[in-house]
Amino acid sequence: MPYLHRERHATGRMGWLRAAVLGANDGIVSTASLVMGVAAAHATPSAILTAGTAGLMAGAMSMAAGEYVSVQSQADSENADLAREKEELANDVEGEHKELAAIYVGRGLDPSLARQVAEQLMAHDALDAHTRDELGITATLRARPLQAAAASAISFAAGAACPLLVVAWAPASGLLGWVFLTALVFLAVLGGIAARTGGASVRVGALRITVWGALAMAITTLVGTLFGGAA
């Protein structure tokens, strides 16, 4: 019985982790910035909540559509490469064998051993061998448009809901401060969780996402204050 050594690597989560973190981060930052900008322009609490809710819906749909189109483009490129590889394997098996062996030589194998490895792998599954070792396409990192779109939309909505709940419950007199501080806490938690899940430093992950979020909210609040004063 072959020995199975099971390991869990962070790269196995890349397909959904990137989309989920991006969506949640964008949901928190854009919605918090939006409500702070509207609040700084002296809008009523109901108008602020309405603007934030509209931003949640629009942002979730935009994230889903954008992520789907982007990842689908990657999937189209992968499918085109796979179709080309199938054609090459059908028309020039010997040339593809030499090409695969040359890849293994480049990775450090002895030429004779590289030829044996290439021969055995191609006998087992020629397309899989070339897909993985020539094209660099693996099952773990394959483009999954629907998964990415769903992860982006759901995570954006979840992130955007956080500052909206603060708007609904915080006193009108201190709304800007409440939204700003709680958004920073949400971002720090998100950055820490994302870094921990991805195998990176929790402190660094929390810090970088918080700094960029604070900058975005500060700029939006300034714009709202300027336009609100002008009005």
Rank of each mutant, 00 (worst) to 15 (best):
A153M: 05
R84S: 02
A60Y: 12
V35T: 12
V223N: 02
R203H: 15
H42P: 08
F227Q: 09
Y3I: 10
N91D: 13
K98L: 13
T221P: 07
F186G: 02
E88D: 10
D26Y: 10
R208V: 09
V35M: 09
H124G: 01
V21L: 07
P2Y: 11
F186E: 02
A51E: 15
A151Y: 06
G213N: 04
W212C: 04
S46M: 08
A231K: 09
I103Q: 04
T53S: 02
L165G: 03
Y68G: 03
A101F: 10
G192E: 15
T182Y: 15
G198P: 05
L17R: 00
M63C: 05
C162P: 01
L190S: 01
I209F: 15
W212L: 13
A183I: 07
G37L: 13
G95W: 13
A172P: 14
P145C: 08
A129F: 06
P145S: 01
A123R: 06
R196Q: 06
V117M: 13
D133H: 07
S201V: 14
G12F: 02
A118S: 07
A102C: 01
E85V: 08
M1S: 11
V204N: 13
A231M: 10
V166R: 05
V29S: 02
M14K: 14
G213H: 06
Y104G: 00
A10Q: 02
R18A: 11
H9N: 09
T140F: 00
Q116S: 08
A58N: 06
A65F: 02
M61I: 00
E99Q: 04
L165T: 03
